[in-house]
């Protein structure tokens, strides 16, 4: 039953994705700047024939509706076209960059959840204590601090001054393991290449912290406030009246309920982490989608921009679906 509902939701994503495809196609062509001009460099260095040849190659000489038709026809078959600048299929380029972004997003989410939930719970249980006030002050700092600035501070402190952690890229040179999923943490485990795994993890730490800090702060606050609400509920008193230890009362009976709003926020934010990390990827030279998006926009690489935006939209759809499914497990009142 549940899997049928999930399939339904995935099918419902198809019209959404087609809508996204049409919109992004139009908006990209509305922006000023011509890809062929940008490729040709300064005016007059190439002949009119060469420009025309390129325009023909990219189908830019055709009327807009014909271009759209060609684009949509390809999209339906899973072909996002060839990149203007890199001259290879957009799907291949994205296929290389997407795992890097996913790995970073989950690294950041893991870091955030790992600390946010204990902090939020502890603050709620010890409401108005020094620890509570301190952690809420820090979370305020975390929310208001720009991520790129925090990233640079991390690089300076842990990378440059202390030299503890690598500050750019996903891996040092010299490692060689077969790429199965593109996610280094998984590929290295599959290849049982432990030194490479360690190296990949080390590379992931600083960007994950930089990217996850705001999420940590938000989640800690959400968890704290919903926990405060839940701790006042009758079922918490009943749990105590049953003779349960306070730790079990809090972790089993209260937290399960308090996590419902936390998961909502996390779900929305995972989408943001996947789609909004251009700055962090640039600061840490992380070869992911964010950097690809920035580069493709500067070079007006239409197919690549379209591909990246469509992937972003798709990750939002998927993240929402995952959250909705998670909901049904954590809150029995909700069905898909």
């Amino acid at each position: 039953m549940k899997s049928i509902k999930i399939l339904e939701r995935l099918l419902a994503a198809i019209p959404i994705m087609i809508g996204v495809a049409i919109l992004v196609f139009l908006f990209v062509r509305l922006t000023p700047g011509d890809p062929v001009d940008l490729m040709m460099g300064s005016a007059g260095s190439v002949s009119q024939q060469e420009i025309q040849a390129l325009q023909e190659e990219f189908d830019l000489d055709k009327p807009l509706h014909v271009q759209l038709y060609i684009f949509l026809k390809d999209v339906v078959r899973g072909d996002l076209g060839d990149s203007f600048t890199q001259r290879e299929p957009v799907t291949d380029i994205i296929g290389r960059a997407l795992p890097a972004t996913i790995e970073l997003a989950f690294g950041a989410a893991f870091f955030a959840v790992l600390f946010a939930i204990p902090i939020g719970v502890y603050s709620a249980v010890k409401q108005n204590s020094i620890t509570d006030r301190l952690s809420m002050a820090f979370s305020f700092l975390g929310i208001s601090m720009p991520a790129f600035w925090f990233g640079i501070i991390l690089i300076i402190v842990f990378g440059v001054k202390l030299g503890w952690l690598p500050i750019s890229g996903r891996l040092d040179y010299g490692f060689n393991f077969p790429s199965v999923t593109g996610l280094y943490l998984i590929d290295t485990v599959l290849a049982r290449d432990w030194p490479a795994l360690k190296n990949a993890v080390l590379h992931l730490i600083l960007p994950s912290i930089a990217l996850g800090m705001q999420l940590l702060a938000v989640l800690a606050r959400v968890t704290r406030s919903s926990m405060l609400e839940v701790l006042r509920q009758d079922y918490v008193t009943l749990a105590r009246a049953k003779g349960l230890r306070e730790f079990i009362v809090i972790v089993k009976h209260a937290l399960r309920n308090a996590l419902i709003p936390t998961i909502t926020v996390l779900g929305i934010q995972i989408g943001v982490l996947l789609g909004g990390n251009m700055i962090i990827e640039t600061v840490f030279a992380w070869p992911g989608l964010g950097r690809l998006a920035v580069d493709s926009i500067f070079s007006r690489d239409f197919p690549l921009i379209q591909g990246v935006v469509m992937i972003y939209a798709f990750t939002y759809v998927i993240a929402n679906l995952v959250v909705d499914v998670l909901y049904t497990y954590i809150n029995p009142k909700i069905t898909l």
């Binding site: 008193t237 009976h253 029995p332 009142k333």
Partner: peptide, 8 residues
């Protein structure tokens, strides 16, 4: 209504 834990 509020004394049973809704998630168990």
């Amino acid at each position: 209504m509020t004394t049973l834990n809704p998630v168990f």
